[in-house]
């Protein structure tokens, strides 16, 4: 099972096994990684699962769709490596990916 590393703003790191096909958001929420609310449960409807993908992993994940791009546009502290974690599906190739959670979601 691919391992995803989640790093909180305070530097706390967690390596989590996330099943292939699950989203990066689910990997966090189901393993009690704090900082990701995901109120809508992954429907790309709330923009409360904003994360930063470590730059070297960015080209390994599919690009943002329109809806995600727009939702992100309204998130806090958006950076070039910002993504909505509910829209990133975990694949075997993403084993070892590093994700940073933001200070807040709104």
């Amino acid at each position: 099972m691919p391992k995803i590393r989640y790093i909180e703003p305070n530097g706390m790191e967690r390596d989590v096994d996330v099943p292939v096909g699950w989203s990066v958001m689910e990997g966090a929420v189901k393993n009690l990684v704090p900082g990701i609310d995901a109120d809508c449960g992954g429907a790309c409807a709330c923009a409360t699962c904003h994360v930063y993908v470590e730059p070297e992993w960015l080209d390994k994940i599919p690009p943002k769709q329109d809806m995600e791009e727009t939702m992100l546009d309204f998130a806090q502290d958006v950076k070039p490596n910002s993504r909505l974690s509910c829209q990133i599906q975990v694949t075997a190739e993403l084993d070892g990916m590093v994700i940073r959670t933001p200070k807040e979601q709104h």
């Binding site: 329109d66 727009t70 546009d73």
Partner: peptide, 9 residues
């Protein structure tokens, strides 16, 4: 409908 900026703003 499929218009996230309209929704969020």
């Amino acid at each position: 409908v499929n218009a996230a900026s309209e929704y969020l703003v």
